[in-house]
Design a protein around this nucleic acid. Structure first.
Length: 812
RNA sequence: GGGCGGAUGGCGGAACUGGCAGACGCACAGGACUUAAAAUCCUGAGGCUCGCAAGAGCCGUGAGGGUUCGAUUCCCUCUCCGCCCACCA
């Protein structure tokens, strides 16, 4: 009996799969396709166990459906733009491209060593100009459609490095490099009008029955659709109006003051009227220094009253004071609110602190506003002609009154903001625009794409975007008038790269278009998408949006890109997520070296269901290695032709367990996505085979069961299974062979054992025919000696038979 | 503060639609094989009490209550943990 040599076997089959193009995907009319995709990795340098988990999960789906006869596409690529490469360039003086390519090369080898069934011919890296050329192409299409626009926006700015910082480069208000305090600055930025699709992104959820409810609810929150009204409050003595948004128009009579965000433009317009301007200006500067997180975490609300101006409540003509306070956000609604302290907790806290009157306008059962705002429904009071109306009805009645009298209108608001896609960095897709002093903003003509990243750039981490230092890049002629012009130096958010890569995989090397429509429509939408829950809102909304834009450009014919979504749990170490920046990663290399890729894959799939968080521990790896060897050794035992002493009953039992296992594993993979229980049921089948009788020379039944074991394990441990399959004399690759079928006829049992409960406790077991009716079962139960003992001196009150499950007696 | 999950032996986890809680694996113990060890194969095992034993009884799925013949599963209250969003008017 030879020991299983994992390293030899795994190399052998990886080579054979490659030589035979086993996993190459080709469009085939009439064959059902299956698109399996795992979110593409960022090439950080090394695979960690989190990656192993993701890609192993994806491989189970891909291999399972291939064995079930589907035309499977399972591509892989690299989300290769982003800050870490640029940081490495600053720190180690390596060009980001070089650093990235090295990392990709290393991680590609690690992935190949895991034996994942990728079609490597479709590999892409988003930092290749063949790829990002099409980011630029899409950008121009969106510009033409009015989906791209420019607007001033707030950015983090480090005054000592003289550079823009990403959110993750600022922690606790301090620059990651120089540790100096950062500030906010307004810069002209590029935006994508994702809000045009806000409603459709929400409505589209109806098509996403194959998504976890958790993700849908997170997206609902993120999109944040709310119904309300915009109301204009006149400003005393200025002729100007202040527009506010409220979700509670029913509380309009309770508005005793107004609050506007420090960034609100009306403050400057009212400058002459504001008597305490110095105080107000100081407050605005102070809150501008705070990060959004600081703002939201401060326990006490702060603000300053604008002396000398008042707003007039349109419903009752009352004058109300106006405050500027940073608990009101500039980016939501109109950046101004009417404050109703009686019915909004935040407003109440503020009103108490600044001594503003509190007027109750909604009376509910037991409503008491002395300590806490009453935010529930009730009946209107102190509301003039609307008194006595239920608050739920008043929403419409009051809004209609406001609308009729020209003070405002009903409206819908979204939390979803337009997507700020420009970055003042080097390592990203250059935005293909040219600023001409004569013609304004002019897109780069399609024939001049791609706009490639220049090489003559130095990475210091200081100053503005490194692209600005490249003369050859910046100095261009205007495509329209030919006069000297300046090239845009902003690059795109890397979320752009991952918003459509799944479509590019369908036609990965097309030089004339992002992809061919026929090919994309053959493979899309993705049947199974797999990735972390952390992408629930950003990536999974951006790419749904992008897909809808591609649909509106008549490039794809589906509405949604991802039919089914599985969000796998994180692999943690001591409870915190593995990531390179935390330095707590575990590399798969040692396990692959010592026990092989199959063991690594099996272990990580067996340890927990895919959706669940998994805290890393190597305990148990040996158990999986043992199991692999148990399957391997079984080959010689089964092959020794030694079964004839097995009785017909033994054989029937063996077949029953085999068919049961096939049924269970198939369901666990296909429907439940519970790979851990699929594996454990194969373990049971293997255990059963070990205790099965082997004497004589007929091994037909045990060989059949053994083959089932090998086929069922192929999605988990493909190398081992290929090797055994070949050893059993098969010429085909097991990866391409049919998935085993089960037959209920073998699973059905004539006689079954069921428990007998008396008053809720199991008191015995009986054998009955599976077909037996309640009356028959009752006879058997009452005739049972043990049951009779338990029934002595008692009265049978109730008899319950749950078919093929349990008998329950209720006695007194 | 809001939303969504979760809590089961020493550990990872299992349990269909309310029907024998703890499958499978790890760790552990015993046996076989061996000069011995490793490896392998077999067996045992939630806790407590009684019993030489076979076995019997009770308790037990974060806590408390409820519905039910029967609850890990459904309902209510609470505690703790994780994730996402977060002063969203």
């Amino acid at each position: 009996m030879s020991d299983y040599n994992h390293s030899e076997v795994e190399k052998k089959w990886q080579q054979r799969w490659k030589d035979n193009n086993t996993f190459k995907a080709v469009e085939q009319d009439g064959k059902e396709k299956y698109y399996c995709l795992v979110m593409l990795p960022y090439p950080s340098g090394n695979l960690h166990m989190g990656h192993v988990r993701n890609y192993s999960i994806g491989d189970v789906f891909a291999r399972f459906h291939k064995m079930n006869g589907k035309n499977v596409i399972h591509p892989m690529g690299w989300d290769a733009f982003g800050m870490p490469a640029e940081n490495a360039a600053i720190k180690h003086k390596v060009h980001p491209a070089k650093w990235t390519k090295q990392n990709i090369a290393r991680m590609r080898e690690q992935l190949k060593a895991l034996g994942i069934s990728y079609d490597w011919d479709r590999e892409i890296a988003t930092c290749d100009s063949e790829y990002y050329k099409w980011n630029q192409w899409f950008f121009i299409k969106m510009w033409e459609k009015g989906l791209v626009f420019r607007k001033a926006a707030n950015v983090n700015w480090c005054p000592s490095c003289n550079t823009v910082l990403a959110n993750e480069q600022v922690s606790e208000g301090v620059c990651w490099r120089c540790k100096n305090h950062t500030e906010h600055r307004d810069l002209e930025q590029w935006f994508v009008k994702i809000t045009d699709y806000a409603d459709e992104l929400l409505e589209g959820h109806k098509e996403l029955a194959g998504w976890p409810e958790q993700v849908l609810s997170m997206q609902r929150n993120w999109i944040g659709k709310s119904y309300g009204a915009e109301v204009d409050f006149a400003l005393s003595g200025s002729g100007k109006k202040l527009k506010i948004f409220t979700t509670r128009p029913d509380t309009l009579f309770g508005a005793t003051f107004m609050v506007i965000a420090p960034e609100h433009e009306i403050i400057n317009e009212l400058k002459d009227k504001i008597k305490n301007w110095d105080e107000v200006a100081k407050y605005i500067v102070e809150s501008g220094k705070k990060s959004n997180i600081e703002r939201s975490q401060s326990k006490e609300k702060t603000g300053v009253k604008l002396e000398g101006v008042h707003a007039i409540n349109p419903v009752n003509g009352k004058e109300t004071p106006i405050f500027v306070a940073d608990y009101v956000l500039t980016g939501y609604g109109t950046g101004a609110i009417m404050a109703v302290p009686a019915h909004d907790q935040r407003d109440l806290e503020f009103a108490k602190k600044y001594n503003v009157p509190i007027v109750e306008v909604i009376k509910g059962e037991n409503s008491d506003i002395s300590n806490k705002a009453y935010e529930d429904e009730g009946v209107l009071v102190n509301s003039g002609q609307f008194d006595g109306i239920k608050s739920a009805d008043a929403f419409n009645i009051v809004s209609e009154w406001v609308e009729k009298h020209g003070f405002g209108k009903k409206t819908i608001n979204f939390k979803l903001k337009d997507w700020l896609i420009s970055r003042q960095r080097y390592w990203g897709t250059p935005i293909p625009m040219i600023h001409c002093p004569m013609c304004g903003i002019v897109p780069v003509p399609e024939k001049d794409l791609p706009v490639t990243l220049p090489e003559d750039v130095e990475f210091t981490g200081e100053g503005e975007s490194p692209l600005k230092s490249s003369e050859s890049f910046v100095r261009v002629k205007c495509p329209k008038c030919g006069m000297p012009a300046r090239r845009e130096t902003d690059t795109m958010d890397t979320f752009v790269d991952s918003s459509w890569y799944f479509a590019r995989y369908c036609d990965a090397h097309n030089d004339n278009a992002p992809f061919d429509g026929k090919k994309v429509n053959y493979w899309m939408p993705i049947d199974q998408y797999i990735g972390g829950i952390e992408h629930a809102c950003m990536h999974l909304i951006y790419s749904r949006f992008w897909h809808k834009v591609m649909r509106d450009l008549q490039m794809v014919n589906s509405d949604e890109p991802f039919t089914n979504l599985l969000t796998q749990g994180m692999v943690t170490l001591g409870g915190s997520a593995m990531s390179k920046s935390k330095g707590n990663t575990v590399s798969p290399d040692e396990i692959v070296e010592e026990y092989g890729a199959d063991t690594a894959r099996l272990f990580i799939l067996f340890a927990a269901p895919p959706q669940k968080q998994l805290d890393w521990s190597t305990e148990g790896v040996e158990g999986c290695w043992r199991f692999i060897n148990r399957i391997w050794r079984l080959k010689d035992i089964v092959n020794s032709k030694a079964e004839s002493a097995a009785s017909d009953n033994d054989k029937a039992d063996m077949l029953r367990i085999m068919h049961q296992t096939i049924k269970k594993v198939t369901g666990d993979i296909e429907k439940e996505h519970q790979f851990n229980t699929a594996i454990s049921s194969v373990m049971e089948l293997v255990n059963y085979l070990y205790t099965y009788k082997f004497h004589g020379n007929d091994n037909s039944v045990s060989l059949e069961a053994y083959k089932a074991v090998v086929l069922l394990m192929t999605p988990f441990t493909p190398h081992l299974c290929e090797e055994i399959w070949e050893n059993l004399g098969n010429k085909d690759f097991i990866s391409s062979v049919g998935w085993p079928a089960f037959d209920e006829k073998f699973i059905k049992q004539d006689t079954i054992e069921i428990p007998v409960q008396i008053n809720g406790k199991v008191r015995g077991k009986i054998f009955i025919s599976a077909e037996a009716g309640e009356e028959d079962v009752k006879k058997i139960v009452l005739a049972d000696e043990k049951t009779a003992q338990n029934l002595k001196d008692k009265q049978l009150v109730k008899f319950i038979y749950v078919k093929n499950k349990i008998v329950t007696l209720v006695v007194k």
